[in-house]
Design a protein around this nucleic acid. Structure first.
Lengths: 223, 223
DNA sequence: GACTCACTAGAGTATATACTCTAATAATAA
DNA sequence: TTATTATTAGAGTATATACTCTAGTGAGTC
């Protein structure tokens, strides 16, 4: 494998494991057992590494979120979209963790991410449309659909941070892809009231597959 | 005002404005026109400053989220909870921005925040209960209520990050408390399907007050 | 063999960062 | 007054961080 690709791969791995803020270019080169100079031969700076990794992430999610508009959507489609998006989030999980700082530090990233968010929201809207066409959910007003889509986006993009922060140190280091996918349970919760009678059972059964094994949080009470 | 309090106040201000990651202890002392030594006389380290600020935040939200259990809840109660929580989020907005890093760096904070999340979720659950008692929303199964509450939490805690990242640089520097409260629109969207017929109109009217003036994001399409 | 060129090592640098140390001053108590 | 304590200034330090510079190496080409 080319050094350049190794740098990208290892950076992603280290960023995901320990957070971008905790990983310096020196860490990356040390991890790869190459010199800092070598790293800087391939990349102008740390931001460029992050930006390239981001482009991969964006490409991946854009690929997943291609919505056919020549046919209605099925429950299988929905499952695929959800599974895929959470897979993507997991593979590039460092990104959302330090999102605001990263966008503040890199104008390109900021602009690209803004458009990316827009595309994702549009895609979620179209998925709702497609599901309504497919008779899975009831048709909604444009307003409601947009607000719902945004809520779906908020739940999805915040799910990982929630998992990491809502648990003590015990679990946080070995978050599994499985736990991550409990986010799907949360997303499907949003749809329940809008399901058609015909699809109520199938969707609830699907949702059940992602139900958290243990209660997500305890039961502390305010005074 | 005591130097110690000035440090806390200015730190919060600087953290909120420019992000905790971009603010060093030297920045804080320079901003206050005191010496670094002076700052370190009052606080052992940067973490301690952050921790004390966090305690204020926690105290504030805990105070807001006292739920009476001797009476049902009204729509006014709900409005108060929503407004208060978003006010709190705004005043301490730096915190959620760098949440994961902060929790990783400070064991006390991690543990306290975990319990805090738990209390908040419990409070949201009880608000739903109270609203059901008050005839605002229909009673729900415990499972559904818990999942709904979690979604409310996810939407609330992610709303600010969404606003900051979904807009280009134009808006991001002057996010207003007003825009922030459009988050209330999103939260109320979650409740729509569960409203009782009697309260459908009142809640929808309330929600309307927080509707975003401009579409929150554009309409870019995936390929 | 001479030459090119992509690639690499590794020492080095300017700056920033969190934090310390000493000495001094202001406030308060005895 | 004297003693004590709280507070402050400000120079200084060890370390980290992002990044640069010079000097190569080794595979392929003419």
């Amino acid at each position: 494998m080319k050094t350049r690709d190794k740098i990208l791969l290892s950076s992603l791995e280290l960023f995901n494991e320990r957070g971008e803020r905790n990983i310096t270019t020196n860490h990356i080169s040390a991890y790869l057992a190459i010199s800092p100079g070598n790293l800087y031969y391939h990349f102008r700076n740390k931001s460029d590494i992050i930006y390239e990794i981001y482009l991969e992430y964006e490409k991946l999610v854009d690929y997943y979120l291609q919505i056919p508009d020549d046919r209605p959507l099925t429950l299988d489609d929905l499952t695929f979209y959800l599974e895929s998006v959470f897979d993507g989030l997991w593979s590039y999980r460092f990104f959302h963790r330090e999102l605001e700082f990263l966008l503040d530090s890199d104008q390109r990233l900021r602009e690209d991410y803004r458009k990316f968010t827009s595309r994702c929201l549009a895609a979620i809207n179209r998925i709702f449309d497609g599901l309504a066409e497919g008779g899975v959910i009831q048709p909604q007003s444009e307003d409601l659909r947009a607000a719902m889509s945004l809520n779906v986006w908020l739940v999805i993009t915040n799910w990982l941070a929630f998992l990491k922060t809502a648990h003590g140190s015990e679990l946080s280091n070995d978050l599994s892809l499985g736990q991550l996918k409990q986010g799907i349970y949360q997303v499907l919760t949003l749809e329940i009231p809008y399901l058609t009678p015909e699809f109520y059972r199938p969707v609830m059964d699907l949702r059940e597959k992602y139900r958290p094994q243990l209660p997500v949080v305890g039961d502390e009470r305010t005074g």
